[in-house]
Design a protein around this nucleic acid. Structure first.
Length: 399
DNA sequence: ATGTATCGTTGCGCATCGGA
DNA sequence: TCCGATGCGCAACGATACAT
């Protein structure tokens, strides 16, 4: 009796698997792998490197040094399209233990074409087989490109590979994670740095929510598909993942094509040049950072943060005259750091105590007008004011 | 829960400046 | 010439965001 039930369940399970495979074959353009047991399902689509429909470029003219340096990649190495592998997973959840990837989205370049390949598990048993294809591609490629892959996709894959006792050191691959670079470039300009936000503001793409799906609904969609075989929502997951891969390539391309300075094709309004200048500064390319900020001012941008940071560069170069000019304008635009720096330069370098005092008092009134008053800062500026007054009195006594 | 890069704040050691 | 206060550079820490 028990034995019969068990056999029944196995029978229905294999029936269901077969049913799911049939459904997939009819609803999504793709194929099954050659594995005799638990084959995975996969789709491939080719794009020309310059897509006409979306107006997106999918491969850059070159990969600039500032990007390679940022990602700690070997700058001397020759790089080809064929070395790149873009990766994005759809998984059964967000927490990194006990989840697995039911879909592996991949992007790579073959013969001047960009290929989006999606590997899908018609049932979870196919996971091991799906890694065959992953291993194949990883062995061919040397540079991984992802969006938040360092913290999400790679750890998920690592834990699953470990579980299946497959030896593959994904960390040995060079890895460019665009999320962190995007944050550096657009943190101050965009409401968020989620891929979808960047697609909208930077790539000019809008996701069609009739055809796409919210990330949070993806795990449940897969579980439902396994139970009822309804392909409608699953098709959306395919599109979602496909779009992620395509836009990761497009974002990589856009960043490469616009962060060299001076820009090849003129200034790009999508780029925050202030952030770009800071990126160059962090790599000790002060010359380029300074040029960018100066060019911004020449172009008529009067931004207190630009003025402040350019002021710091001048100050470090001991060009106090220029530094003071920058800090002065920034001070008038209510930049407390610049008020502070103005005080220091006037007091320590020029010994213009009267002017220093005026600025110190300006900073104090700014500080105490804040909704949250920082007592420590007020105490510091009070000390400076007292000191300056003392110095001025001494000078007056002499006269 | 997880892992990673970034940013703002804080504190420490060292150099420097100014006053006596 | 010496001492105390100030400024600078760097490391350490904590908070934040993003992926499904």
């Amino acid at each position: 009796m028990i034995q019969d039930m068990h056999q029944d369940r196995e029978f229905y399970a294999s029936e269901l698997k077969e049913l799911l495979r049939e459904t997939l074959k009819h609803s999504i353009a793709g194929e099954f792998s050659a594995h005799s047991e638990d084959p995975y399902f996969y789709t491939q689509k080719e794009y020309p490197l310059q897509t006409e429909i979306e107006g997106l470029a999918l491969y850059p003219e070159f990969i600039p040094e500032v990007l390679l340096n940022w990602a700690n990649l070997d700058t001397s190495k020759e790089r080809k399209k064929e070395d790149i592998l873009i990766l994005d997973l759809e998984t059964t959840g967000l927490r990194s233990n006990g989840i697995f990837a039911f879909m592996i989205g991949l992007g790579y370049y073959v013969n001047e074409q960009f290929i989006v390949e999606q590997i899908f598990l018609p049932d979870p048993e196919a996971e091991v087989n799906s890694f065959d294809r992953l291993l194949e591609l990883v062995n061919e490629k040397s540079l991984l490109i992802t969006f938040n892959g360092k913290t999400f996709d790679i750890p998920v894959l690592e834990s699953r590979l470990l579980y299946h006792q497959i030896w593959l050191n994904l960390r040995a691959m060079e890895h460019l994670d665009l999320l962190h670079l995007a944050r550096r470039l657009w943190k101050n300009k965009l409401p968020s740095c989620a891929l979808e936000t960047i697609e909208f503001y930077i790539l000019g793409q809008i996701r069609d929510m009739e055809l796409d799906i919210e990330g949070g609904e993806i795990p449940q969609t897969y579980f439902s598909f396994l139970l009822n075989g309804n392909p409608e929502l699953m098709q959306r997951v395919f599109l979602h993942n496909h779009t992620d891969i395509l836009h990761t390539a497009a974002l990589f391309t856009l960043i490469c094509n616009s962060i060299s300075y001076p820009p090849q094709g003129g200034m790009d309004s999508r780029i925050d040049y202030h952030s770009l200048a800071m990126l160059y500064q962090s790599q000790n390319r002060i010359d380029i950072a300074k040029k960018i900020l100066e060019d911004m001012l020449s172009a008529g941008i009067t931004d207190k943060d630009v003025l402040r940071d350019l002021g710091f560069i001048y100050k470090k170069e001991k060009d106090m005259e220029s530094a003071l000019k920058c800090f002065n304008i920034a001070s008038s635009l209510n930049c407390p750091v610049s008020m502070h720096e103005t005080c220091i330069i006037l007091e320590k370098y020029y010994k213009r105590y009267g002017e220093a005092l005026v600025n110190a008092e300006k900073l104090k009134s700014y500080l105490i007008s804040r909704p949250i008053v920082n007592d420590q800062k007020v105490a510091t500026i009070d000390k400076r004011i007292a000191r300056l007054k003392l110095k001025l009195n001494k000078i007056n006594e002499v006269i």
